[in-house]
Design a protein around this nucleic acid. Structure first.
Lengths: 211, 211
DNA sequence: CGTTGTGAAATGATTCACAGCT
DNA sequence: AGCTGTGAATCATTTCACAACG
């Protein structure tokens, strides 16, 4: 087996940034872009852009740049978003509801197909066309629904337990809005969004600036 | 003037993680923690934890570890969250509303004090006790409200324009939920949350795993 | 000619390993 | 004895700079 060309983590994080910018350039009617232009739009150097893209293949043409449509297709393929991903949302509170209704998921290949909540007062309600199911049904209902991504939007206290249930039900990726570190077995990806942390980050940058 | 001990960006990002974990340890009734324990809870090595904290001072006691309450106070001071930060939310749609209602901000020193929206059908509504004001009032109303942080939760198309208005009104930090890169003058901090990107990241990790 | 792709150099971050404090 | 703080070594990422290409 040929060994994979290692992918630097920062490169992996920037990939979706390139993809987003390419979409925007297409809307503006552009058809090619060079590394300098793509970098300028994202605050990256031209060399950085070229190194990142070269990790996955040779997509550019010397003297011309990158064909936007072709590069977009490559990136989608590389990221796995050239197909549809079904998503389950656990937690139908403020955040869970907002996320379930988020209109941009559809354009990017994601579709919420089920919503769960632990609160009996919420179970049975409808959120964006989905009847909220009890979390106790995760075990029995999830397998067979062909879902590999989950969004956790429950309070901190319940998050680890929900994560365990989701993993047991075969989920391979979790987007976590609860402000706790989730411990999951290898092979399961976790990405976290902590709103208070994001604001703290800003407070810190501002405070550090004037120090 | 003595030159600042440079702060590595990854260290800056982890600071709020330590803070969050310390809160959790306090709730569990612990009073001291060592670098190994703090690291284990966050998937970091003990050396990493010590290096990070040592960037800001000598907070630990050899043979004992770190006093949780004292370290928490230090981190809060360093991050600037030992005081109250007023926050303005622009955009009262799904995300803006969820963020405005987010109960955890209060515990962490943040307080939403105003909500704006561009849609006349939404202006005048009440969200979590705040009457929604028209974005056109940002210029006149914001200055004097003592707000340095803003949350942008408007569609991609309007985000840059809103950012410009906020900067003009004296905001120094922006948490951006719109899926676009915001260009701001130096001295203004931006931190972004892009839900579709977060899911893409997971899709990529999963796809890359089985390659 | 302009622009890519890429080795080589420079910079940045993490890990090691241990002296020194309590 | 246990654990911190920290130089030195390793590892990772970015930037430089240029040959090769359309």
């Amino acid at each position: 087996m040929a060994d994979q060309p290692r992918i630097p983590k920062p490169t992996a994080r920037r990939l979706s940034l390139y993809l987003r910018e390419l979409e925007s350039l297409l809307e503006q009617g552009k058809s090619t872009i060079n590394s300098t232009g793509l970098g300028a739009a994202l605050d990256l150097t031209d060399a950085q852009v070229r190194k990142d893209l070269a990790t996955f293949g040779q997509f550019g043409r010397p003297g011309v740049g990158y064909d936007i449509t072709a590069l977009r297709a490559e990136l989608r393929r590389i990221m796995g978003t050239d197909r549809q991903w079904n998503v389950v949302v656990v937690g139908a509170g403020n955040i869970g509801t907002a996320v379930t209704r988020y209109p941009r998921f559809g354009d990017r290949g994601f579709r919420v197909v089920a919503v769960f909540d632990a609160d009996p007062a919420v179970v049975g309600n409808t959120v964006a066309g989905h009847q909220v199911l009890p979390v106790s049904d995760i075990q029995s209902r999830l397998p067979g629904m062909n879902i590999s991504l989950a969004i956790i939007a429950v309070p901190a206290e319940g998050a680890q337990q929900v994560a365990d249930m989701l993993v047991a039900a075969g989920i391979s990726g979790i987007l976590n809005f609860a402000p706790v570190y989730l411990s999951v077995p290898g092979g399961v990806a976790v990405s976290s969004v902590d709103l208070a942390r994001s604001l703290e980050q800003l407070a810190f940058e501002i405070s550090a600036d004037l120090a």
